[in-house]
Design a protein around this nucleic acid. Structure first.
Length: 593
RNA sequence: GGCUCUGUAGUUCAACGGAUAGAAUGGAAGUUUCCUAAACUUUAGAUGGCGGUUCGAUUCCGCCCGGAGCUACCA
């Protein structure tokens, strides 16, 4: 039983009994009581003054008195300004405490039966992943976990952009300058090798353009007519025709990239239920163009191109089929959406894509609606802000990107150095140490990224390495490790975690029970907002609360058996809740650190 | 120009329209005979500007100022 919901119902019936209000739609507002006042929950009285027709003080007193008389769980109340603060009895909290500990599935909401697909990562195959991709991947993963905790059936998918001019550029450069080199020969991850050739292509191209300009062409002409660009465009045409040699090279270089991506995904601890490839879906949606034309929502122009007029919706016209009959990205996305909704009987489809594509998704939904697909309303674009460096946006071409693998490695090294400095690894085997460094470095990175509201842009300063102290992942991991340490020692002494009715609960303990009891509400809230950041902030607050408690009281040295075992139960409950919350963020918590 | 997002301590982040705007970090000062000091305690420090709606606005609305992105027969 959640305290807010409980008291909302009580206040509601008090309103009914005292003021003859009808129970439905009463404007009852409940919030946690602020620390500086006495009480557990607070009813905001302003909204109900119209019904009570009394002053805030009078209204509060009447409701408070009524509740005190009729609700045994309530111990006292006070009214400050327009706020009715209510304090529950110790027994009320003890019962909640017991219920939480007895509930294995605490924090997992009941199944909704809804099928939700979450698409994230969706990389191009011409270069390695960078920090921007990491934000996408971590968000996608944690939102998936969050939606699962909200009771949905979640399917995680990745749509790999494996075809197009970008990969042809890498292929062209490799053909010209690669001398048959492979990732094994180069001793580097395949995605990095392919990325090197993408950069190489740009060097070659730029040099050609420069030369042509020197020979008297305009910049525009030079860019268009550069031989290497022409050859690369021809390569794409060859690929589409299925030219054997081109396809073989394409397959080879893509497979290198996939090997590289897989390693990064594995390090990050993410996986997908299904991977789609654009080479297999890029022709989707053409049939929808026919449908749109028949319905009269699309129009064919003289040159044969097909458009959807969105000017009536405040947007421009959108091209769906080129004059030569080939389709564009939007066409494919329309087809893919339709295909997925029908194949998996989806109730919802979440796309984790950067906010630079807000317009695209606006158009996508609009066109689907025009085509008569009501499920278009069940598409949710989880639009997140860009990761910026102090100098501004990351740009692959200018080399101002923070490479994902480099970052993970440097985080690992920092975790290692810090752990050794603090003397935390005594008695640990090599494997245990490696496991711990991975856990901590990933915990720091993931928390750093996920704690920020997804829709906001965020700043990453490579010069100031990601913190391990304060409001960080390792802080929460450390809190967990401390609790586990206590529990281990208790177990050695033969003590169990057990809530004893004779053990009094102090304010801090009640405050912790209160916080833990809010966890399911937070999960629901965060799910509704598609915001794992809310879970991150919650977990931090809870960990902080425990650290303060830990500082104030002793657990193992407590002589009263009932009190000690109750405190052990409290600590254990916090560890469990932190574990669940951090699992949503994809962060694992160590037993020791 | 149009559309979307955004502006909070020196810095990085919080705050269903609610009480005296919270943390962290950095600055200053402390805590270890005691369950892990990656912790804890004290301290100074912020809502870009002007209006509006409201009992109450960081939050909603309008205008101004400042950022970011989109507005391709690219993906």
């Amino acid at each position: 039983m959640n305290q807010d919901i409980f008291i909302a119902a009580k206040v509601s019936s008090a309103m009914e009994a005292l003021f003859g209000a009808s129970a439905a739609n009463l404007p009852i507002q409940i919030q946690a009581t602020r620390k500086e006042f006495t009480g557990d929950v607070t009813a905001v009285l302003f909204p109900v003054l119209k019904i009570s027709k009394l002053s805030p003080e009078e209204t509060g007193k009447k409701i408070g008195e009524y509740l005190l008389q009729t609700t045994p769980e309530i111990e006292s109340y006070n009214v400050v300004k327009g706020f009715l603060n209510i304090k529950f009895s110790e027994d009320f909290w003890r019962t909640i405490f017991k219920n939480i500990c007895a509930d294995e599935r605490f924090g997992f909401l009941p199944s909704t039966g809804r099928n939700v697909m979450v698409e994230f990562s969706s990389p191009n195959t011409n270069k390695p992943l960078h920090l921007g991709h990491i934000r996408n991947i971590l968000l996608g993963w944690s939102v998936s976990k969050l939606l699962e905790a909200n009771g949905h059936n979640v399917m995680k998918v990745n749509l790999v952009n494996d075809r197009g001019i970008h990969i042809c550029k890498s292929m062209m450069a490799w053909k010209r300058e690669g001398n048959g080199i492979t990732p094994e020969m180069a001793g580097k991850k395949g995605d990095h090798l392919v990325g090197d050739f993408y950069v190489k292509f740009n060097d070659l191209y730029t040099a050609q353009v420069k030369e042509m300009i020197a020979n008297g062409l305009s910049e525009e002409e030079a860019k268009r007519e550069a031989p290497i660009m022409k050859q690369t465009q021809q390569m794409l045409v060859d690929w589409e025709k299925g030219d054997e040699e081109t396809v073989a090279l394409w397959k080879k270089m893509n497979s290198w990239v996939y090997d590289g991506f897989d390693k990064t995904y594995e390090t990050l601890g993410v996986s997908f239920d299904r991977v789609y490839y654009e080479s297999q879906t890029y022709l989707f949606g053409k049939s929808l163009v026919e449908k749109g034309l028949q319905m009269g929502v699309f129009e064919r122009r003289e040159d044969g191109s097909v458009w959807c007029d969105l000017t009536g919706d405040g947007l421009d016209s959108k091209l769906l089929l080129r004059g030569d009959g080939t389709s564009v990205y939007m066409t494919q996305d329309l087809g893919t959406a339709q295909q997925r909704f029908s194949e998996y009987n989806l109730d919802e489809h979440v796309y984790v894509v950067g906010n630079e594509q807000n317009y695209h998704f606006q158009v996508l939904k609009l066109i689907l609606k025009k085509l008569g697909f009501d499920w278009a309303d069940n598409i949710y674009h989880l639009s997140y802000g860009m990761v910026e460096l102090p100098e501004g946006k990351m740009k692959s071409r200018e080399g101002t990107v923070v490479d994902a693998d480099d970052l993970l490695e440097s985080m690992y090294n920092t975790a290692k150095e810090t752990s050794m400095e603090l003397g935390k690894i005594e008695g640990m085997s090599e494997e245990e140490q490696d496991e711990l460094f991975r856990m901590i470095s990933l915990g720091a990175l993931k928390y750093f990224i996920i704690k920020v509201d997804p829709k906001k842009g965020m700043l990453f300063n490579p010069k100031e390495s990601i913190d391990f102290n304060g409001n960080t992942g390792p802080f929460i991991q450390y809190t967990h490790a401390r609790i586990k340490s206590i529990l281990r020692k208790a177990a050695q002494a033969g003590w169990t975690a057990h809530i004893d009715d004779s053990a009094p609960l102090n304010d801090r303990e009640i405050s912790i029970i209160k916080a833990v009891n809010m966890y399911p509400v937070k999960v629901a809230e965060a799910g509704k907002a598609y915001s794992p950041a809310l879970i991150a902030n919650y977990a931090y607050d809870l960990a902080k609360e425990f650290n303060q408690y830990y500082h104030d009281v002793t657990i193992l040295k407590e002589e009263n058996n009932a009190v000690r075992e109750t405190r052990l139960a409290l600590a254990s409950m916090i560890a469990d809740t932190l574990t669940k919350a951090m699992d949503i963020l994809g962060i694992r918590l160590p037993e020791k650190m």
